[in-house]
């Protein structure tokens, strides 16, 4: 893991070394966009954006890679009452679809995403299926 990337992570948030990633950093929602923009300038490449429901909040996870072999993550937490985050789609173009998927499945809205619509579910859907509060019905058999 390059030291300048670790430096950027620790400027904007708390950088931790941990299981499964070469580094991981937790940032505030305000620092989310700036941190991603700095990492992009330093040569980081988009890999994935996803989320985990933590009960009272949704943790949005951005996975970035430093080619060829390093991957690290940036996390921001959105409380249930205010599920919004700034978009990264102008910094990393593939994030547009990734953010649409997070919106479709978790209900996190990304401010500034040019097409904040459902992607996997039909347009008429009103549910956010990957939330804990959405419980799958027991099968009758």
């Amino acid at each position: 893991m390059r030291s300048d990337l670790v430096g950027i992570l620790s400027i904007h948030g708390t950088a931790l070394h941990g299981l499964g990633f070469d580094a991981r950093a937790v940032v505030t929602r305000e620092a989310w966009r700036d941190c991603a923009a700095d990492l992009q300038m330093a040569g980081a490449r988009f890999f994935d954006i996803t989320a985990i429901d933590r009960g009272d909040s949704v943790e949005v996870i951005l996975v970035l890679i430093d080619p060829p072999a390093t991957h690290f993550s940036l996390r921001a937490s959105c409380p249930n009452e205010d599920l919004r985050l700034d978009t990264l789609s102008d910094i990393f173009p593939p994030a547009e679809w990734g953010e649409r998927e997070v919106f479709d499945l978790f209900g996190v809205e990304f401010d500034g995403n040019p097409d904040m619509t459902r992607i996997l579910q039909p347009e008429s859907s009103t549910i956010f299926p990957l939330r804990r509060s959405f419980v799958l019905e027991q099968r009758p058999w």
Binding site: G18, L19, G20, F47, D48, I52, I65, H71, S73
Partner: peptide, 20 residues
């Protein structure tokens, strides 16, 4: 407790699995 992300080279590109 925790989460990991693994990248593999699938026939179509970089397949990533994140499990928590």
């Amino acid at each position: 407790e925790g989460d990991v992300c693994v990248r593999t080279e699938s026939p179509r590109g970089e397949l990533g699995i994140l499990v928590a």
